[in-house]
């Protein structure tokens, strides 16, 4: 079976220019630097990492909201990397985005009905069909018909996120890229929205690329998880295996840093020193070596490649993990 989405060696470098009149390129911010993964229909891939690691840029590049610098994006087996104009627009119908901030992503001058109708209008769905669909969608996301004529400011954060989800569903997409969809919400509301997203996935067979920094939420919703650091995936695997047996030192540190809601737990914490280096000047060799507690001379010089580290297909890019079998790209275990 071809995966719904396949990304091969995706790169996005933003140029740094100098000079106002004749700008010349003096460097590049390597926001995404060689990301590869596969995502099967109906599954969820969680993308985690700290701010600035390139997870949002990855999401946006896949949607082609940002033009990739290098690499290939295959959607339903079709190479969409160089698609433009009408063809791209038709394809966008099948890929939607849910944003982090439900305050900024809804137009304050439009009613909920107009907001949800807009994508359908763009694709020329007639008024009667739109009306019917809007009622359906509001019902699916747990809002009532009388909410239709209200404006975004009349809603709470959780309700606004529901409107955002309804809009994303308006065109019956296959893939939804969720960019931190619950991080702006309170815990009790967050749980409601996560439950809703899970229900929708079951009902409509949706595929999610779930981008978030909250490791608990990602664990809960994902089938597979990819951990990103400075534009690269450093570890990838089954959600629970990755959390129980993290192989990459970065994943280990990240997981040990989560404060857990259990006062009896005395965790052995790996506190990383310093901050994430700037993606404009990423360290040579292994990008994590500046903060890695295990770093050796080799890490400064040689860049580790992704290798399979467990029989179930968990992969990590570190010189110090033992390889099982071999393979340099992701294989999603069945």
């Amino acid at each position: 079976m071809t995966p719904l989405l396949e990304v091969k060696g995706l790169k996005k470098h933003f140029p740094i220019t100098k000079g106002a009149v004749i700008p010349r390129k003096v460097g590049a911010v390597k926001a995404v630097d060689g990301v590869s993964f596969q995502l099967e229909q109906g599954k969820t891939l969680g993308l985690v990492g700290e701010s600035g690691c390139g997870k949002s840029t990855t999401g946006r590049t896949i949607l082609k909201l940002i033009e990739p610098t290098e690499g290939q994006i295959l959607f339903k087996g079709q190479d969409i990397t160089s698609l433009k104009g009408n063809k791209l627009r038709r394809l966008r119908k099948d890929m939607q985005l849910i944003f982090q901030d439900p305050f900024a992503s809804l137009n304050p001058r439009m009613t909920v009905e107009q907001i949800i109708a807009e994508p359908m209008k763009v694709f020329g769905i007639n008024k009667a069909a739109r009306r019917k669909k809007i009622d359906q969608l509001l019902d699916v996301v747990g809002l009532s018909g009388y909410h239709k004529n209200r404006y975004p400011h009349e809603f709470s954060g959780g309700q606004r996120q529901r409107v955002g989800i309804a809009r994303a569903l308006a065109l019956d997409p296959d893939l939804i890229i969720c960019d931190e969809p619950v991080s702006a919400l309170d815990v009790s509301i967050q749980a409601q929205v996560i439950n809703l997203m899970e229900d929708l996935q079951k009902e409509f067979g949706l595929t999610y690329l779930f981008i978030a920094h909250d490791l608990g939420v990602v664990h809960h919703i994902s089938d597979q998880i990819a951990v990103m650091y400075l534009g690269e995936i450093v570890e990838y695997g089954h959600y629970h295996e990755l959390y129980e047996h993290p192989k990459h030192p970065y994943t280990q540190a990240l997981l040990s840093a989560i404060p857990e809601a259990n006062p009896h737990l005395q965790k052995e914490r790996i506190v990383l020193k310093g901050d994430v280096p700037s993606p404009a000047h990423p360290p040579a060799g292994c990008k994590f070596h500046t903060r890695c507690p295990l770093a050796q001379e080799r890490c400064r010089l040689e860049k580790p490649i992704m290798k399979t580290v467990s029989p179930t297909g968990q992969q990590a890019a570190c010189h110090f993990v033992k390889e099982v079998g071999h393979g340099d790209r992701f294989v999603v275990p069945k």
Binding site: E50, S51, H213, L215, A253, L254, S256, A257, I258, P259, R269, V271, L272, D275, V276
Partner: peptide
């Protein structure tokens, strides 16, 4: 703050 930095600040 990010989790790793949060851990630093809490410590």
């Amino acid at each position: 703050l990010d989790v790793t930095v949060q851990a630093q600040i809490l410590e």
